[in-house]
């Protein structure tokens, strides 16, 4: 039993040294990481936008969210990264820059959406007076 186990371990070591791995499954795992990071950077951008964070603090916010995401991936991989990924970089760094672009987009756009929604709110609240103004205008014309 013990020798069999050793044999299995040795075999696994040899396979690992040769760099044999299932590339299809690796790509599947990488795809999952990309999806998660993109979604989380969008959500992080929205949160930073609502909080009204500006400047360097916003980028610190992004790094924080990505660190939390990396921790989540490690937990999702049952803390045995070697079984699912080639190296630590793949779980920690991949999809970092593309996520940054989405983050900045959604970080700066909510303030414009908020402005747009505010205008809508004002119009809907003051719709009566607005109609009055317009009717007054037409009268004066």
């Amino acid at each position: 039993m013990g020798s069999g186990h050793d044999e299995k371990n040795r075999k696994a070591d040899v396979l690992e040294d040769l760099g044999l791995l299932n590339v299809e499954n690796l790509q599947n795992n990488m795809k999952i990481i990309y999806y998660s990071r993109t979604f989380l950077s969008i959500i992080g951008g929205v949160i930073a936008g609502i909080l009204g964070v500006t400047g360097v603090t916003g980028f610190i916010c992004y790094f924080l969210i990505m660190a939390i995401a990396s921790l989540g991936f490690v937990a999702k991989a049952d803390f045995s990264i070697k079984a699912y990924f080639n190296s630590w970089n793949q779980i920690m760094l991949d999809g970092f820059l593309s996520g940054l672009m989405s983050f900045v987009l959604f970080w700066t756009y909510p303030s414009r959406w908020l402005y747009f929604l505010k205008v809508l709110l004002i119009i809907s609240n003051d719709s009566n007076s607005w109609l009055q103004y317009s009717s007054n205008d037409s009268k004066s014309l």
Binding site: A12, N22, N25, N28, I32, L40, K76, Y84
Partner: peptide
């Protein structure tokens, strides 16, 4: 974000 995209599959 962690549960929807799917499960990790072993590469060994």
């Amino acid at each position: 974000a962690l549960s929807v995209p799917g499960k990790f599959i072993s590469i060994h």
